[in-house]
Amino acid sequence: MSGQQINPDDALYVDMYIAKNSQTMTFIRSSYSAILGLAAGTLGLTNWSGFIFYFLGSAFLSLLIFLVKAKGNPSPYFRQPLDVFTEGVLGGMLSYILFWTLLYGIIHVYD
């Protein structure tokens, strides 16, 4: 092989399953962010308390994924086992803010 670098990880993992797992994580995180946003808007949270609520909710969800989906052992499913706690948390925040402001507006502002 001239000039081509071979990544040893290519033979170690199945790329399709890595993509599939991260797709599943994105599905769980984004749906749950929408739900958390609905709850935060109904509670009438403002400012930092809303973001603290989001991170508490995500921590709860991570725990659920860790216990129910990964059955307490995430290492066969992710390249880094800690990915089960961090993957998609910041991406879900956008849909969280969307639904948070929507429900806050519907219930607390325009009544």
Partner: peptide, 21 residues
């Protein structure tokens, strides 16, 4: 309801695949 939704969504989503070749 938030707690119930968490459990429900985690159950509805597909199972993880084992990524090791």
């Amino acid at each position: 309801s938030v707690a119930l939704f968490g459990l429900g969504i985690v159950l509805v989503a597909d199972d993880f695949k084992e990524i090791l070749m």
